[in-house]
Amino acid sequence: MIEGKDISLVYGDGTKALRGVNIAISKGQLAYIIGPSGSGKTSLLKLFMGIEYPTEGELKVLGLKMQKGQEANIRKLRRLIGPVFQEFKLIKGRTALENVMLGLRFLDMPSKMIKEESKNALIKVGLSHKIDTVVEHLSFGETQRVAIARAVARKPALILADEPTGNLDVDNALNIMSLLASFRNENTAVIITTHATHLLDNIDQGEIIKVENGIIKMESRGAVQ
């Protein structure tokens, strides 16, 4: 599903975000990428989302080569994944349902199903009562759930969530973590980045990948999948 060999990422200003990263994520896997702020975990996720290209090394996501000049692959990948962005990236002035539907409109899905799948996704994340609420009128946690609903409604092969616990308190953060983990199944892998390592003490499923200074320091495969 994801295969990365000797990946490096250097930003335009010379910042070395990732160095010689080797990573493999398989189908249906649940993985947590942890590390302090600035360690490179968001950069790694950006590579998986097709927002950045590796400066060196080779990366394939869902069988698509991620490389500069492969824009068609990037566009295709972005339609296959379910991203949950750190800053949510919901469209202001639109309802929760409209936001979720927007992520499906350009996919190969009949119009009737778009609304149905969007509603189902919002119900799954516990927002059945907020379907027609404009996103600015939702709480932080609810907004986050809309972003998750938008990602899962697409029935993606890969859900990528960047710091989904953000500024949430422990209980809400754990709820969001377990909500995201619940979408993992035999066809859907879930990758979550977080700097809140203390939350992982309460989580008994998934692999933990630790990133420090742009290098993968430790891969814990001991956790139950």
Partner: peptide, 8 residues
């Protein structure tokens, strides 16, 4: 956002 979601 639409571009990040893969919209043509």
């Amino acid at each position: 956002t639409l571009r990040l979601l893969g919209a043509p």
